[in-house]
């Protein structure tokens, strides 16, 4: 599966990329901010997008809203991977259209499991 990962912290970017590639077996494209993510998503087809919450230029929430309001990218499932772990933050993220919300610090294996189950749901929904 092709996954787009937007994360400004290089260490976390590398860990998440490695986890998704090595544990999940996905093809991962990385970028450093929401603006880049939005442009990349418009240009190529991705199965899922992972967004960090706090990023320069365009934060996770803004990027999610932009992706959801742009018809070609509106159906791509979005997962937040963020340090904002308050109930209100999670609700805000889910309201913006996110399919999953993972709070940092995260267990790489659990990240992959979560993404796996979201992709599974997506596969079940698409034929219907």
């Amino acid at each position: 599966m092709k996954i787009l990962l937007a994360e400004d912290d290089p260490s976390i970017q590398k860990i998440a990329r490695l986890a998704l590639e090595r544990i999940g077996g996905h093809t991962v494209t990385v970028c450093d901010n929401g603006d880049e993510a939005f442009n990349l998503a418009k240009g190529a087809r991705f199965d899922l997008i992972v967004l960090d919450g706090m990023m320069p230029v365009m934060d996770g929430l803004e990027t999610c809203q932009a992706l959801k309001s742009h018809p070609p990218t509106s159906t791509i499932p979005i997962v937040f991977l963020t340090a904002k772990g308050q109930q209100s933050d999670i609700q805000e993220g889910l309201r913006a259209g996110a399919a999953g919300y993972i709070v940092k610090p995260f267990d790489p294996a659990k990240l992959c499991q979560e993404i796996e189950s979201i992709l599974e749901n997506q596969r079940l929904q698409v034929p219907a």
Binding site: I12, A83, K104, D107
Partner: peptide
């Protein structure tokens, strides 16, 4: 604090978990 402590801990915890998972 929430952000500044969680970010490095994410890297530490993530790196350790990845190493321990044997995938690298």
């Amino acid at each position: 604090v929430s952000h500044e402590l969680r970010t490095p801990m994410t890297s530490v915890k993530g790196s350790l978990s990845l190493l321990l998972s044997g995938t690298v």
